[in-house]
Design a protein around this nucleic acid. Structure first.
Ligand SMILES: NC(=O)c1ccc[n+]([C@@H]2O[C@H](COP(=O)([O-])OP(=O)(O)OC[C@H]3O[C@@H](n4cnc5c(N)ncnc54)[C@H](O)[C@@H]3O)[C@@H](O)[C@H]2O)c1
Ligand SMILES: NC(=O)c1ccc[n+]([C@@H]2O[C@H](COP(=O)([O-])OP(=O)(O)OC[C@H]3O[C@@H](n4cnc5c(N)ncnc54)[C@H](O)[C@@H]3O)[C@@H](O)[C@H]2O)c1
Lengths: 212, 212
DNA sequence: TCCATTTTGTTATTCATTTAACAGTGCAAA
DNA sequence: TTTGCACTGTTAAATGAATAACAAAATGGA
């Protein structure tokens, strides 16, 4: 049962591993082949201890004199985070934010591609938007199952969030990234990540006020 | 020194208070005047205990029989989070994401308004974009100080993040919301909040893979 | 009148994450 | 050789946050 050898890695560590990889790729492009924990730490503005602890958790060992082998580490993080065959992603709501995200992701990650979008506005459906086909939401079950999509990004208006999520789950989506301000609920076998931009900005505003 | 009576409120509580307020405003619009902790909890899909604990921390008491007075609570959260006179926000990088955010925020929060943008592309500067004036970045010190802006949202390309933040801090910005994938560093008296969309999506992808 | 019910407010406990402490190792220079 | 240095890997402690436990209060009904 080697299936779950990474089961007890903290969520925050998973996030950082993704960031380590990005930083390592940039370093590799500059011709660097090895890197110390304190160098990685400096790039992300965290501590070297945290970096070493994270790498310990995924079982990677560096060399005492040269630090970590950048290519090996990039590869190992990929093995952990990525699916070998890659994963397709669908986006729900082709408005300002949806389109910005699609443009942003184009060619960003080889193993994670936004391949279809859904909307209900007839001016947006049945054509390509930002380079990907946009379907009417009523086609959701057909498309999601044909394409084998498991991940969805939610960028519909807030008052549509609950109903759209219901349909997504019904269609077989197993992971949702919710950018609407409406908290949603999903069954246990669906992974949910929510981000509320207004809360974030109000938090910044609060601490600015407090510090001043 | 009653200045810092809210100093020891957890960061996560601040975020939730912002979300409580949104939910309460929606409830108020529907004509509801009172609400129980478990009702608020159901709206955000969290526990009633957490709601009560958060409200305890800001010193708000409900009535045993009627729960919380919605208008009172909205008002109190506003007193805590908002600045009485309101705060202006500047956005750096008027690209896809920057414009989406501006459109999104229009009229969303009375006490938090995005009033100016900065860019370096001559086609974007010295005119209005998405309803707000866009200046060249070289005007940063002048505009930021004239308008008394303390909060900035960063949506420039990743490789411009460090330099832009340096200029923002120099110009007097005290709170930064960084949406670039590049972690940045700020002095102690500047509050920094970072959000990396790719890490979030990779995290979702990872847990989808693991659960399957 | 008093008991059962429902809900609040608060303290105690558990869980998650970060930070600190430190032993072990390989290399370089003395 | 040996000593000092600059790292890594791991365990221990501290901090932060969520959850559980429970006393106190108010109401309505037995
Ligand atoms: N724009 C931003 O910067 C921003 C930031 C944070 C959060 N958000 C949130 O993201 C969501 C979208 O924001 P936006 O600015 O792109 O809005 P938008 O109005 O530009 O886009 C919404 C899109 O969803 C489509 N839509 C409506 N109902 C739908 C349904 N039931 N199924 C599928 N598609 C549907 C609309 O036709 C439209 O194309 C909102 O919930 C908003 O609160 C936006
Ligand atoms: N588009 C998205 O959905 C999305 C999501 C998450 C993060 N991001 C990040 O947000 C940032 C912007 O993304 P985007 O899609 O809007 O890119 P974009 O290319 O559309 O916009 C970038 C804007 O910044 C301007 N700019 C460049 N250098 C500048 C400088 N030094 N000072 C001020 N302005 C400058 C450009 O002229 C352009 O208008 C990027 O760092 C990206 O990684 C974007």
């Amino acid at each position: 049962m080697e299936n779950n050898r990474y089961k007890n890695i903290p969520h925050k560590t998973i996030e950082r591993l993704s960031q380590y990889r990005r930083a390592l790729q940039i370093a590799a492009e500059k011709g660097k082949t090895n890197i110390f924990s304190h160098e990685i730490a400096a790039l992300l503005h965290i501590t070297a201890v945290q970096v070493r602890r994270d790498l310990m958790l995924i079982g990677y060992s560096g060399s005492l004199r040269k630090g970590y082998d950048i290519n090996d580490l990039i590869h190992l993080i990929g093995e952990l985070i990525d699916s070998p065959k890659g994963q397709k992603v669908a986006i729900f709501g082709m408005g300002d934010l949806g389109r910005a995200i699609i443009n942003y992701f184009q060619g960003k990650r080889e193993k994670l591609q936004i391949t279809v979008g859904f909307d209900i506005n007839p001016e947006k459906t049945n054509r390509k938007i930002a380079g990907i086909p946009c379907y009417h939401l009523e086609k959701i079950t057909e498309i999601i199952s044909n394409e084998g999509i498991k991940i969805g990004i939610l960028t519909v208006p807030g008052d549509q969030a609950d109903e759209t999520v219901r349909l997504m789950v019904e269609a077989g989506i197993k992971g949702i990234l919710n950018y609407t301000p409406t908290p949603v609920e999903v069954p246990d076998d669906v992974y949910l990540e929510e981000y509320n931009m207004i809360s974030s900005l109000e938090k910044v505003a609060f601490y600015v006020k407090e510090k001043g």
